[in-house]
């Protein structure tokens, strides 16, 4: 028997996602909720385009070794969100 603790939440609640923005930042974290303020992510890793590691490599490494948490809680405004995908569907 399993035990479910999160009834009645957003379909992505509790799922680790890759959130791509229209800007240079990509966020990896656990989807918590969505409200007027935007998308709430927990235990978030942050990648900024133009750094040492490409976005693709950052996602690949995070899928293999886990997400290094840069922010405990982050709210991404809705209009900044380009795409949200479960990390587990990206070859993790």
């Amino acid at each position: 028997m399993s035990h479910v603790f999160h009834p009645g939440h957003h379909a992505l609640h509790g799922i680790t996602v890759v959130l791509e923005t229209h800007g240079a930042e990509t966020f990896l974290g656990r989807f918590d909720s969505e409200d007027e303020g935007g998308v709430h992510l927990l235990d978030v890793g942050v990648h900024e385009q133009g750094g040492g590691v490409s976005k693709e490599e950052y996602i690949r490494r995070s899928a293999k070794f886990g997400i290094r948490v840069d922010r405990k809680h982050l709210v991404v405004p809705k209009d900044a969100v380009a795409q949200i995908m479960p990390l587990g569907e990206l070859g993790g």
């Binding site: 509790g14 680790t16 070794f65 886990g66 948490v69």
Partner: peptide
């Protein structure tokens, strides 16, 4: 410690070495 903490997760070890790791994101929604 080569793997970032997540829960639930599973580590497979052989003679003290991690040979395979299952992260939370590989469990969610499945």
């Amino acid at each position: 410690s080569d793997y970032q903490p997540s829960s639930p997760s599973m580590a497979l070890l052989r003679d003290g070495e991690v040979v395979h790791f299952v992260h939370r994101h590989q469990i969610e929604g499945r």
